[in-house]
Simulated assay, not measured.
Amino acid sequence: MTLILFTFPGQGSQRAGMLHALPDETIVRQTLDEASVALGRNVLELDTDAALASTVAVQVCLLVAGVAGARLIESMSGAPDMVAGLSIGAYPAAVTAGILSLRDAVGLVARRGALMEQAFPHGYGMMAISGLNQRAVERVLAEVHGPDMPVYLANLNAEQQMVIAGRDDALARAGALAIERGARAADRIRVPVPSHCELLDDAAADLTRAFEGVTLKHPRLTYLSSSMARAMFDPDKIGADLAANMAHQVRWHETMRLAWERGARLAVEMPTGNVLTRLSADIFEDSVAVSVSDTRPDSIQALIERARAMAE
C-alpha cells in the first residue's frame, strides 16, 4: 500500500519573507486572510527579519505557512492519508487533519509562543548535534547538567542528529564536549527558548488551560504525534498532547519510522524549508520525500497521482 504523508516543520525553519513566498493562489490568499482575521492583524506583517525575532511571530508564521501549503496541495491532489508535525508543526498538522479550526489554532499558537517567550526571554536556546547517537549525547549531557547548568535532550531527529535545550553556557559546554567525543557539528539553531524539556512544564500547564474552551474534532485522517511517536485518534488526548508538546521530547525519527510502517511512501514537507525532508532520507530512501519549498506544486501533484495509481 502506498500512502501519502504531509509533514510540518518546527521552529528554526523560518525565514524572512516566508509567507510572501507562498504561491499566489486563491486558496493561499484565503488562508492568509482567515488567519489575519483570527489574529486581529495582517499576518503578512509577521515575516520580516525584525518581526521574526519574536517567538510568537515565528510560530504563527509556521502555522499559517503549513496550513496554506497543505490546503494548496490538497486542492490539487486530494487529502493526504496521514500527517505529522515537529513541535509547532503539530498545530498545522492538526488543522489539516480537521482536529482544530485554523481560527482556534491561531489563538492557541500565539498564546504558546507568548508563554515560551515570557518564560525565557533571554539566555536560553537549543543546539543541534550531528554525528553522535542518543546514548553518546546523553553521556555528554550527564557531565554538564546541574542546577546552575541546565541542559536536556530535546529532539531525537535522526539516528545521529539530536537537539539539546538549555541555558546558553550549558549548551556551549555540551557542544564543545560533543565535538571532543566525535560529533561532526554542534550548532545553535534559531530557537531562543529551551523547548521540549521540563523547563517549559509551567508554560505547558498554562496552555493546557487555554485548550479548555476549544472545540476539538475526531481526525479525518491519521494523525501522528511526534511526542508520542504513535497514531492518535481521540480528540481530547490529541488536545492534551498539543498543549504539552512544548515540554516533551520530540521523537521525530521514531515517528517517521511509524509512518513508514503504516504505509507512507511519499512524504511531502509543507513550507518552510526542507529540514524534515533531509531528516527522513534514510527512512524514505526507497521511496520519495520532497518539500513544497523546493518543488513545484504541479510536480508534487504528479508525484501524488503516480503514488496513488501504484496503490490501485
Rank of each mutant, 00 (worst) to 15 (best):
M246L: 13
V67R: 00
A281D: 10
P147F: 07
V67P: 00
S280M: 05
L3K: 15
A247K: 03
V268A: 06
R209W: 02
V56W: 01
S299P: 02
L199V: 06
A158S: 15
A51P: 02
S36N: 03
A231L: 12
P121E: 12
A259D: 11
V151T: 09
P297I: 02
L221D: 14
D49L: 12
G239Y: 01
A154V: 06
H122M: 08
R112W: 01
A105E: 07
A65C: 11
G40N: 12
A240M: 10
A205R: 08
P121Q: 11
D148E: 11
E261R: 13
I238W: 14
V193E: 03
D294N: 04
M228Q: 14
A244E: 07
L221K: 10
L153V: 05
E117Q: 15
L72W: 00
T26A: 15
H218D: 14
W260K: 14
N155R: 06
I300L: 03
R29Q: 10
V290E: 10
S75W: 00
I129D: 03
V288P: 05
A281Y: 01
A90K: 03
G10Y: 04
A244P: 05
H122F: 12
P297V: 03
L3A: 11
I179H: 08
R265T: 15
Q11H: 15
G125R: 00
T277V: 06
D282M: 04
G125N: 02
H218I: 12
Q160D: 12
A311T: 14
T295I: 00
V290T: 11
V193T: 06
A70G: 03
G175P: 11
V288S: 11
V151A: 07
C61R: 06
E269P: 03
A136Y: 10
Q301E: 14
E159F: 04
V83P: 00
Q59A: 10
H248W: 15
A158T: 12
L207K: 06
I283C: 02
E34A: 15
A38V: 04
M232S: 14
M82P: 13
D33R: 04
P297R: 04
G10V: 07
A119D: 09
M270V: 05
G239A: 05
E254F: 03
S87W: 00
V83G: 00
L258K: 11
T208M: 05
Y91A: 09
A244M: 10
D24E: 14
V64E: 06
A65Y: 01
H196D: 02
A84W: 02
G273H: 02
P121H: 08
Q134Y: 10
M228N: 10
F233K: 13
H218K: 15
G166P: 03
C197F: 00
R111Q: 11
A259C: 14
P150A: 08
L276C: 13
D168P: 03
K237V: 09
